[in-house]
Computed example of a mutant assay.
Amino acid sequence: MTLIFAHRGYSAVYPENTMKAFREAEKAGADGIELDVQLTKDGEIVVIHDEKVDRTTNGRGHVKDLTLKELRKLDAGFHKKKIFSNHEPIPSLVEVLEWMRTNEMICNIELKNGVYPYEGMEDKVINLIREYEMKERIILSSFNHYSIVYCYRVAPEIETAPLFSEGLYMPWIYAQSIGAKSIHPKYTIAKNELIQMSEDYGIAVRPYTVNKEKEMHRLISTGCAGLITDNPVIAKKIREVYE
């Protein structure tokens, strides 16, 4: 069965990468969530996609230049104020893991360390995963494949998945070579043959960000392990057609 991961939570409707979006993804019947992590000025792991807070909050500046306390004051639901009046803080990874203790959700943590290397971030994330005993329910992904390889060497018990948006020749071989059990390609390059060959070699394929219904039909019928979408409700309805 193709698992449905809510991209930054149920972000088609709710403010991305907020606890509200994650809780609503669970209510919508998603199997898992996908989120992004960065490091604050005081070394805390926070859940936010961009290196700057400008697009998703009512604040300005870089995540790395603000403390957790300063970031928590910002409203991550600011741009969807017409729909949601509540203040939605930027979550810490600890907050997400605490919430995961109340459910069975799987979580794909994307390490956002391509622009700023965020020294020590991998170790901090891995330590938290171990502390919360979540190794069976977490996948670590990144466009920074050096980071992915580091995670595999330090914590081989946690699944890793390289992200890529360009065509990669025989990605299942590449994945095996770096110890990754899965790959997360952009859906436009996740051709049916690539999915089938990878899955045959024991490499799970979870394309991102799949929002077109036609593509959901194609990927689910091809039998990919999972798909990452902004709209888990639509994906779930389409999956039911194939069950």
Rank of each mutant, 00 (worst) to 15 (best):
R8G: 06
R8H: 11
G9A: 07
Y10A: 09
A21P: 12
R23S: 11
K27Y: 13
A28P: 03
D31V: 03
D31P: 05
G32C: 07
G32F: 05
V37M: 11
E44P: 02
V47P: 04
H49C: 09
E51C: 10
V53G: 03
V53I: 13
T56I: 11
T57L: 09
K69W: 09
R72F: 14
L74F: 06
A76C: 05
I83T: 11
S85M: 11
S85K: 15
P91I: 11
E95G: 08
E95R: 14
V96W: 04
V96Y: 04
V96M: 10
W99A: 00
W99L: 08
N103M: 09
E110P: 04
L111E: 05
K112N: 01
G114S: 06
G120S: 10
G120V: 07
E122I: 01
I126G: 13
I129L: 04
R130Q: 12
E131Q: 14
E133C: 05
F143C: 13
N144M: 07
I148Y: 14
Y150A: 09
Y152R: 14
E157Y: 14
I158M: 08
F164E: 00
E166K: 13
M170H: 11
P171T: 01
G179Q: 04
P185Q: 01
E193I: 14
L194S: 01
E199Y: 08
D200G: 06
D200C: 09
D200W: 11
T209W: 10
V210M: 01
N211G: 08
E213G: 01
M216F: 02
T222G: 01
G223N: 02
N231W: 13
V233I: 06
I234C: 15
Y242W: 09
